[in-house]
């Protein structure tokens, strides 16, 4: 028990702030390099900001957990985190569904055009 008291309680806060900032910079770097499109990165940036705010403003977490009726504040973090992951995953499913629909339509149209082109070429060479 005594060892616990020796731990600097501010350390976790410094780490949280540092990690959040690095995370946010990493996302911005990816957007700058056009690795992520802006519209898909907004949600990641939003959560980056939320992480930073929560790691700086410690009472904020208490306030939120109070609001949500969560007795143990760190649980509120997990709750928010899970909701975030859920939203992002649903967004991914939407995007994947749209992509695969577009993808097969593209393959169909391309194949039909290729066949038509071959027929035309064949007809031309017969003349």
């Amino acid at each position: 028990m005594e060892a616990d008291n020796l731990v600097d309680i501010n350390r976790v806060q410094y780490i949280a702030i540092a990690v959040s900032v690095v995370y946010l910079l990493a996302i911005l770097y990816l957007i700058r390099g056009k690795k992520i499109r802006e519209e898909y990165s907004l949600i990641w940036l939003l959560f980056g900001v939320v992480f930073i705010v929560l790691s700086i403003w410690r009472e904020g977490l208490d306030w939120i957990s109070n609001l949500l009726g969560v007795a143990y504040p760190p649980t509120a973090i997990f709750l928010i985190f899970f909701m975030a992951i859920f939203l992002i995953m649903i967004q991914f499913s939407l995007i994947i569904s749209r992509l695969s629909r577009n993808n097969s339509k593209l393959a169909q149209d391309q194949a039909l055009i290729k066949q038509k082109l071959e027929q035309v070429e064949k007809k031309l060479s017969e003349k």
Partner: peptide
């Protein structure tokens, strides 16, 4: 033979639909 060559596998539904598009056209 007269055939349509899909660039990659799109599954039986999309495959048959390609034929139906051809038939319609």
């Amino acid at each position: 033979s007269n055939f349509i060559d899909l660039a990659y596998n799109i599954g039986i539904g999309g495959c048959v639909q390609t034929g139906l598009k051809y038939a319609f056209e």
